[in-house]
Design a protein around this nucleic acid. Sequence first.
DNA 1: CCAGAAACCTAATCCATGTTAGGCATTGTG
DNA 2: CACAATGCCTAACATGGATTAGGTTTCTGG
Lengths: 253, 253
Amino acid sequence: MLSAALQAEGHRRGPHSPLITKLETVSRLSEGDHEALADLCADPREMGARRNVIREGERPDHVHLVVEGWAARYKLLPDGARQITAFLIPGDFCDLHVTILGEMDHSITTLTRAKVAYIPRSKMDALTERPGLAKAFWWATLVDEAVLRAWIVNVGRRDAFEAIGHLMCELYVRMKNIGLADGHSFELPLTQEELGDALGLTPVHVNRVLQRMRADELISFKSGLLTILDYRRLERASGFNPNYLHIAERPRS
Amino acid sequence: MLSAALQAEGHRRGPHSPLITKLETVSRLSEGDHEALADLCADPREMGARRNVIREGERPDHVHLVVEGWAARYKLLPDGARQITAFLIPGDFCDLHVTILGEMDHSITTLTRAKVAYIPRSKMDALTERPGLAKAFWWATLVDEAVLRAWIVNVGRRDAFEAIGHLMCELYVRMKNIGLADGHSFELPLTQEELGDALGLTPVHVNRVLQRMRADELISFKSGLLTILDYRRLERASGFNPNYLHIAERPRS
DNA sequence: CCAGAAACCTAATCCATGTTAGGCATTGTG
DNA sequence: CACAATGCCTAACATGGATTAGGTTTCTGG
């Protein structure tokens, strides 16, 4: 039997990196665009788990791109509480165009061991000269924004069960889209505390809800591997509608 | 004594429309840029309060811009609950570059009587040809994103008192920035229900918190006019840091 | 200027989630 | 191989905010 990683490889839409696969959901890119993007991911920096990629208040002169592994955006409150505002998976830019804003207003940390590309501003500017990529970057930014809005709904108006289910559905669709889901399983390297920090819950309560989801036979979640046992039911139970991810093709279930 | 509106006029940074005033916080714009922007706001559509500007699922071929009055982005849940994800004040685009995404994944409604400009896509494309405006639009989009992140923190990790205080501070700074605050007063035409829908609270609880804020002599809030009686204290009590709005000059207090 | 609607305010009760305080299992490491 | 660290799990109890159900005040349109 093939390893999970190799199986996932076999399910990819194309032979490309997550970044290219993702950006091609907008519109077909040219050969030159492909080369330019592949070049970006060429020499990433390897980082350990839970390392700062960049911190609030810094003024980076380069852009970060997650090539492999998971990272998270977060803000710290005066009392030390943490709110995660985004999970970054391969192909996600950490801070596209921060240079326009100047100073980071939040921090980014790796969650797992990861490969992160450091892209100088000049290179980004060159990429943006290409109309296909300029449009693709706009698309990626607008989708990030849409994800933030869905996140607000999750935290503001859904109860813990729905919110966790909704987040799982979203991450499943995103992972599937870049070829990193195998059937209804994918690597979800999040602790219960990290899930809580994302959804404004305590780890204790996250645990309660996960137990219930297991008892309901909705999911199996063990040592970083999530399997959604009944995707339709989870989708319904959490009010998930993937339209905000703006991926044309919905994943089959 | 001058009317509130006229006084506010006197406090403006420049003689310009909110949109121009706002975009000039990034970088100085050219004469031509000014004219192009002024042209945008020239012939807005007048709308009543609580009218849909655009609804989830629609595929607009033009962009909307709030010229006067307030609007809000929101999503409805299956059970009818509403989550507001943004307040739009004069100078805010409702859906910059939706045309890239195709379909709206949320709805927008006016909150007050309002003037909304309808800008055809072709006109937007022409504007984006101007490097100064292209950069300004990127800036506006990135700030919108930063506001969404702050909103998540508000809903996820702050209690009701802090969250309401934080929102008031943010709206104050934004209104001040476009010349629509008079001292520490500004028009905040939101019902307690709308505040609740923004922060994931019930109107009952919003009311309790407002009463407490009044008792603490932090604010006065009556018939749509909010006065922050002690800005520093409100800022501290709610953990507000305006850095995420990326406005160079902090408002004096 | 009147009537109905909308918004505001309040009180009593309830519950989803937080808090505290552990014990247990797994994993990485010298 | 052991032991420290981390993450997982559970239980008892506490609470912020929801729910329900009004009454009151303030708009608004005719």
